[in-house]
Nucleic acid binder design. Structure first.
Lengths: 198, 198
DNA sequence: TAAAGGTTTGTGAATATTCACTAACTTATT
DNA sequence: AATAAGTTAGTGAATATTCACAAACCTTTA
């Protein structure tokens, strides 16, 4: 779990992220990465075995980071509805500061690239499921969310809306305030998944 | 609008679709396309000026087809809720028969590839918006859908859920019954966007 | 202290492979 | 005869990766 990463490796991951957010998956070449770092292409291979390894390291870093953040949020909140909101805001704040991860996680170009990359991306999704699903289930039990729809499907709708928002943000060149739009989406989702009071 | 396409061109588009669904965007090369067609690479260029032109033609075909289908559905249904359901089922049935379009439309690898491809994909999304938005708005007016959330945002949630379903289907290698899962999603969505009866 | 040897991190050149695309030629159909 | 639709055999550019080598630094030993 405690993936050890050298300073240089971290710099490379950051550089790769910058390229991803600016030039997309197809722009992420060893040549561009080396240029971004300011050294020759061959030097990249002093720190990573392959391009694939760089991307996997990047995704693993995100997975660990996300696991930590979500764990923190769950630990410091009690009410399911409140926790869900905190998770939402946590994600929004994180992606707002690290837009390249939007490209990394929500792109299929990378998923096609290799099996290990694909697995890494799915792992990230599962981190979210791991925290969201019990939360939604609990919220249903407590009467905060509608019991008419299975928790898995409620989660599907929430995650789908979130992903589409990220897609739109990226398509717009990260040109609008994702936190603001995210807040609005969240508000709407809460309205919709609330149980009807009769 | 009346995009004229020769028989061979249509065959090429179909072959490209088959490759897309089996090998993804990265598998769609002229070499593979020629192999699929059973002739040499250079012969492809007898029918299309470039690879880009093939993809654009494919997307335009989808756009026209979709426009036609949605127009048909809207014309033969009256009730907004009923129309929305019919659109949903129409899409499910179409994608179920043409899974390659899922790859084409919901992939970012293609969007990055060129400006004209990007525009073609966005055009397809807009065809959906054009039909869905008035429908949802009307449904809200008639008290079939909740008025608490703006129509645009309701549409966002619906489209996001649908896209995620397509993503999951593709990730699973088109290995489950998309019509069935789609029906379930639709049922859940309808439950959720229904206005509370007090 | 100074030399010897090892490690880290870089360089520039070269590798094989893949890619979209093209020129010139052949063949069949009308 | 002319056109459409195929072929063979190339092109140059881009790709990830490997190679032998070198400068700078650290550690051991005489």
């Amino acid at each position: 779990m405690a993936t050890n990463i050298s300073n240089r490796q971290f710099e490379l991951i950051e550089a790769a992220g910058k390229i991803l957010s600016e030039a997309g998956v197809s722009g992420l070449t060893i040549k561009n990465l080396a240029r971004q770092m300011g050294f020759a292409e061959s030097a990249v291979y002093r720190h990573f075995d392959s391009k694939e390894a760089i991307i996997v390291a990047m995704l693993n870093y995100l997975a660990e980071n996300m696991e930590e953040r979500l764990g923190q949020v769950v630990a410091t909140t009690s009410n399911p509805s409140e926790t869900l909101e905190a998770i939402f805001q946590n994600h929004l704040s994180f992606f707002s500061k690290n837009p390249h991860f939007v490209v990394a996680v929500f792109s299929d170009g990378l998923m096609e690239a290799s099996q290990s990359i694909n697995a890494a991306i799915l792992r990230i999704m599962q981190v979210n499921v791991k925290y969201l699903l019990p939360l939604i289930y609990e919220g249903q039990q407590q009467g905060q969310f509608t019991p008419n729809v299975p928790a898995e499907d409620l989660m599907h709708i929430i995650m789908g809306s979130f992903r589409l928002l990220m897609f739109k943000w990226r398509s717009a060149g990260f040109g609008f305030d994702i936190s603001l739009k995210g807040q609005q989406l969240m508000t709407n989702l809460f309205k919709i998944i609330q149980p009807c009071r009769n």
